[in-house]
Design a protein around this nucleic acid. Structure first.
Lengths: 252, 252
DNA sequence: AAAATAAGTGTAAAAAGTACATTTAATATC
DNA sequence: GATATTAAATGTACTTTTTACACTTATTTT
């Protein structure tokens, strides 16, 4: 196995005979599955598709596909997301690699799960019309194939965990949103209720919100002021600990 | 591709002809690499081995190997850890899947990294004598092969992050330890100093420690009382948020 | 006996978190 | 056009947590 110099994968493709390999090892299919969360102003939703190939054809499934030969996993996740939903430039984070040998009955497949957060309204039409993807309230989603329900459970926990300390939930909101909407979102994620005054004070203290002059009149007679995210501060504070949730116990 | 019933992987092995496959997809090598942390009472250390096969034979590397055909990833991580270091039953958590197509120049390999926390003293001899593994202070570790330094960086961040909220660092300590030792560990991990009185009060308030009657006389004339971890409470509180670190900013 | 060393401990002030009720702006109804 | 209805917006007093800070104690060394 002695070797004078390293041979890149590209070279190896051109000169397959010369390429040393780890001969005796098994090779596996590797896939990406995406847990895509959206928020419609009232509840947290999950984007699902009907699986297009056997086994389990026609059953509900996370968006996912196989990684290609020369494709980085993260790039693959973005490609698959884009191909299957048209989404691009959304928040995407690696969740966990799932590798139970029995998880796909056809052939062992290792799946790297990613979770995505998107503004549901920005894509609602497109998703339904062009891609036959469907939003389900997370509390009444259908049964999913393989270990996808386990993936969703883990993603929910991760989302709660992150949301307790980092301003990640803004990724789920449209450009303009109201404080009551934001509170709804937090209450949905943490399955609890917060005192309006305390919540508002805490959010305002982060200085991440910029008050707009117009109001949302859809949800109340008085109307609630719109806010926009201060993108500069958001970028700077994303990894800071904002302690959004007073007692984040019972999360994990 | 229509199929009457599912065929398990085991069945498929017995009747290879009958097994439907995802024909056109590329298959990849999948490996596990372990970032193994230890604490010697003074500083955080990293367990490394000299790589046994080309390429990069003889260079320093994380402990790692390929996943086997019918092996779950987590089980594989435990097997590899045990085979290469003799360690068993230690804290092990999945960190991240690394999949840059160029990360191993011989053949594309997707590596699922795990990090482990161990009580260094319990294994010091065994590791050196039987396995030729070596501990390096994390601040003066040698260059590592492939993307292993990137893995270590990510593991350090994850460790800090978890340690800020969960009592995870006890995994690095021996059964009996003193409060000053514990404080040393936290100060090392967070690269800062804490007030002795405040640190002690905070730790005691978790009620995770049981005071022993004997003292450690090695590190001071007066001696410091030993404590043991209350294992019941530890198990119950592991996922609770203990807020060990007052202002956990600058972590990630 | 005196000096040196690190362990162990308390208190007051500041900040953060909690609990709680009324007023306000706009629309809908009579 | 007066009244009822709805959800938004806002302040204050109390409790808990965090922070800043210095001396005494037990033991060994000289």
């Amino acid at each position: 196995m002695a070797k004078k110099r390293q041979i890149s994968n590209q070279e190896a493709k051109l000169f397959p005979i010369a390429m040393p390999k780890y001969q005796k090892q098994t090779r596996f299919l590797v896939a990406v599955d995406c847990i895509i969360f959206g928020f419609d102003g009232t509840e947290l939703k999950l984007l699902l598709v009907q699986r297009g190939l056997e086994p389990e054809k026609g059953k509900w499934s996370l968006i996912g596909s196989f990684i290609r030969e020369e494709e980085d996993i993260e790039k693959g996740a973005n490609r698959i997301l884009n191909q299957m939903t048209g989404l691009a430039g959304v928040y995407l984070e690696q969740l966990h690699a799932f590798g139970n040998p029995e998880r796909d009955p056809i052939e062992r497949t290792i799946s790297v799960a990613y979770f995505a957060l998107i503004d549901i309204h920005q894509y609602e039409r497109q998703l339904n019309d062009d891609y036959h993807a469907e939003w389900f309230p997370i509390k009444s989603a259908p049964r999913l194939i393989f270990d996808h329900e386990q993936m969703v459970e883990m993603a929910k926990k991760r989302l709660r965990y992150k949301a307790a300390f980092h301003p990640i939930l803004f990724e789920l909101l449209p450009e303009k949103f109201t404080v009551p909407q934001l509170q709804n979102l937090y209450e949905g994620i943490f399955d609890t209720v917060f005192d309006k005054r305390n919540f508002s004070r805490k959010i305002q203290s982060t200085k991440l919100l910029i008050k707009q002059k117009d109001k949302d009149k859809e949800n109340s007679k008085k109307g609630a002021y719109y806010y926009k995210l201060d993108k500069r501060r958001y970028a700077a504070n994303f990894h800071a600990f904002l302690n959004f949730i007073p007692n984040p116990d019972n999360i994990k």
